[in-house]
Design a protein around this nucleic acid. Sequence first.
DNA 1: CGTCGGTTTGACCAGATGGTCAAATCATTC
DNA 2: GAATGATTTGACCATCTGGTCAAACCGACG
Lengths: 203, 203
Amino acid sequence: MSPPRPATRIQARNRAAILDAALDVFSAQGFRGATVDQIAAAAGLSKPNLLYYFPSKEAIHNALLEQLLDTWLAPLRALDPDGDPLQELLAYVQRKLEMSRDYPRESRLFANEIVQGAPRIHGALSTDLKSLVDDKTRVIRTWIEAGRINRVHPYHLIFSIWSLTQHYADFDVQIRAVLDDEDPFDAAPDFIDTLYRRLLTPP
Amino acid sequence: MSPPRPATRIQARNRAAILDAALDVFSAQGFRGATVDQIAAAAGLSKPNLLYYFPSKEAIHNALLEQLLDTWLAPLRALDPDGDPLQELLAYVQRKLEMSRDYPRESRLFANEIVQGAPRIHGALSTDLKSLVDDKTRVIRTWIEAGRINRVHPYHLIFSIWSLTQHYADFDVQIRAVLDDEDPFDAAPDFIDTLYRRLLTPP
DNA sequence: CGTCGGTTTGACCAGATGGTCAAATCATTC
DNA sequence: GAATGATTTGACCATCTGGTCAAACCGACG
């Protein structure tokens, strides 16, 4: 289940290379679209050699997903109930947007998994993810009750943040096809900041 | 290239059944994840029989995508330069949201294609899609210049609408995992309407 | 040097998968 | 109801793909 701690330097290097290559391939092709040969080639290993480090294609995928959920939800975990509501939420939004810019492969890996019904992480969604979101929506609700931000549906507020920020990673090609040369991340932070300011700032 | 017009009633029925089945399978599994056998079974045909109507798996996929882009962009095409700006934009948003609710398979088919780099529709994105968006952002810009809606980045405004509305179809499992029993589409229309009202309504 | 555990590989296998084809079946028209 | 073209199918093929395995290789240590 858990990855064996690397016994040697070679193991550490190769396991890392494999995971990085696998992230490339899985995020670009989806689980079924990816082939072990592709991953092995991208990692600079032969297929049997790759399978010496991971027992199967699925094991690699699982290793990636496992590691992903944690880092992916870190920004939401960091939402501080004792901070200033607007600042906290805007900071969360910006952090998520930065992740889309800096870790688009992770975002697409996640998107591929969810769009296709989350066959491998459905459990984690309705336990870990749900309880985290339940927790944070309670925080948001108290902010609303205290009149510190506008009354909005807390769950849909969070969904909207996920959606708006991850869109820039997941639909990157579409956005760039429309924008031509302009870098989406030039104007996106400001646009999204404005959007949530107007939505949340009490009159 | 273009589908032969159905010569017989049977052709019409079977071609339709195949496309419907293929939409099921492709949208749930992606192109590479779908198998011809699956599609054939879902359409109630044998594999060779299916391949009597379409020359290849890719041909079915292309037929779906071709048909999709048109219907998918119809709501944006309907944005009326002579209408009331806020009404037009809010109506566009709601139409898109209805499409996510009523045609989630189409949305996911599109999402699968884009997330994986749009290998098959890249051309259409940077021609048809781009020119449509260029056109409509000009409309939005004139509305802004006239002071009829707030000054926002027109391209990112459109991206945000795509993102927010399609998210409910594409990330359906995630949303439902978090919301438990509640139907996302109960509260989503109101939330999104409020969001864009606050963003766009001039002071 | 020799040995021994860790690492790498070529050859191989079984099953899945996209696609073909000749023959059989069916529907329509005369 | 015979003829003719459209439709359907069972059997088949080539290729791809995930995975196995025994043998070779390598590097560190005695």
